[in-house]
Write a protein that binds this DNA or RNA. Structure first.
Lengths: 232, 232
DNA sequence: TTCTTCTTAATTGTCGACAATCTTGTGGGT
DNA sequence: ACCCACAAGATTGTCGACAATTAAGAAGAA
């Protein structure tokens, strides 16, 4: 059983080679296989993936869309560099957008969907208790929860922005800064409170709780980062 | 003097042919020259703009990014169709993101920037009083105000999302639904109140006022739309 | 007539080559 | 030694052609 979470489960399967290359490069960047800040040469990557430059350029365009590479005309593309300010900026937006998503989800989710999400949480909790501290699983669980809430908002722009554009960056920060979970049990409690608010159709509360949840996550990361700074 | 507002003043000049084609097609879609819902054939547009398909496909990818066209693999691209739900979804996001932008602007704008924006408002007010009801100018002024606030947030993701992705759609809705301004004087008052809150460094109030401002704009459009429905 | 199926045409995806641009390294001058 | 101009190399942007897939239309059966 593969525990690696597919971040694009809401999208269609990759059909074109540009799609395949995109997925591969996305993973390579998120996992750090292509180091942050490194230069990307089209010819190089094209050879590496056994495709022509045409589909690779298509993939690059989409990578730029999800903020994983930065391109300058006639000069090429670089993998983004992770910065403290960038992380803050990212989480600021997440707070607003996921708060909104949560409010909309509370208004629009079908009862069965809520039930299913609640079940999923129980499931994660059980698995987490079994594998105490196994963090990647936790991350997948967290991502999964957020994904479901976002999809439940049924706002297409919101879904695109969060799932297609921002979430790769979120995962990249998590992976490369080693955000393996201490915050596990608290995160689960917060998820639980959020799903309760949604079940009560209390959009306002769900919004507030989601913002707090993300804010807490941000503060947690900030704390880890400053600790890391002291060392280095 | 050309009153047409350049929506990408914060970006570099177009350097590649893909850039030029992108700008042209963006304008064509926003203005309705390429009708909403119509199919886009790559060969056709390529010939129309005297370029090869390669730069045109690059442009198409970016058009998809700003939600002006929808592509399906192996099937081609269509200009987006404007819907009531889409408009609501768009303004929901604008409320959140521009509210955030406004709060950040209140915290981060330099005194001189605030002064300049205030001056710009006075300028718009004067011009608007001269040409009573000339609406496109008003739109440019409104767009300009929002652009400046967004840029002042200094959050790069926010700037990209709002200025590069969503604002073309906003303009498309405005142009094609004939949102010429009745709401002129009230909009100016609201802008004035917002800049005041920013000048007082009251981020919370600036946030609230911007949300209300956009909410009012949305309700105004909703009203017009329902009136339009009664006719047709 | 209507539906299905197959053929044909049109359109998108991909490729390799060339042109335009930027980067690097060398040489000369101060 | 330092700086600037220039040339060679590498990289991106663009092009036209071919392959793969889809859409359109004709032919035939119910």
């Amino acid at each position: 059983m593969n525990l690696v979470y597919d971040p694009q489960h809401h999208l269609n399967q990759p059909v074109t080679s540009a799609d395949r290359v995109l997925l591969a490069v996305q993973q390579a960047i998120v996992e750090g296989e292509l180091p942050a800040g490194s230069k990307i040469t089209e010819t190089g990557l094209a050879k590496q993936f056994n495709v022509s430059r045409a589909p690779l350029r298509e993939a690059l365009a989409r990578l730029e869309r999800c903020h994983l590479v930065e391109r300058t005309p006639n000069a090429g593309a670089r993998v983004v560099t992770l910065t403290y300010d960038g992380l803050i900026a990212l989480y600021q937006i997440r707070e607003e957008l996921e708060g909104l998503a949560c409010r909309l989800a509370a208004e629009r989710m079908a009862d069965e969907e809520i039930e299913a999400l609640s079940k999923l949480l129980e499931q994660h909790l059980a698995s987490q208790r079994v594998r105490e501290g196994e963090s990647y699983y936790q991350e997948a669980g967290d991502v999964d929860f957020h994904y479901r809430v976002i999809l439940a908002s049924k706002n297409q722009y919101l879904i695109n922005m969060l799932c297609d554009e921002l979430y790769f960056l979120v995962r990249m920060y998590r992976v490369q800064l080693g955000m393996n979970g201490p915050r596990v049990s608290r995160a689960f409690d917060e998820h639980k409170a959020i799903i309760n608010a949604i079940a009560n159709r209390d959009g306002e509360l769900a919004d507030l709780l989601m913002r707090r949840h993300i804010s807490a996550s941000r503060k947690n990361i900030e704390q880890k980062l400053s600790a890391h700074k002291e060392v280095s």
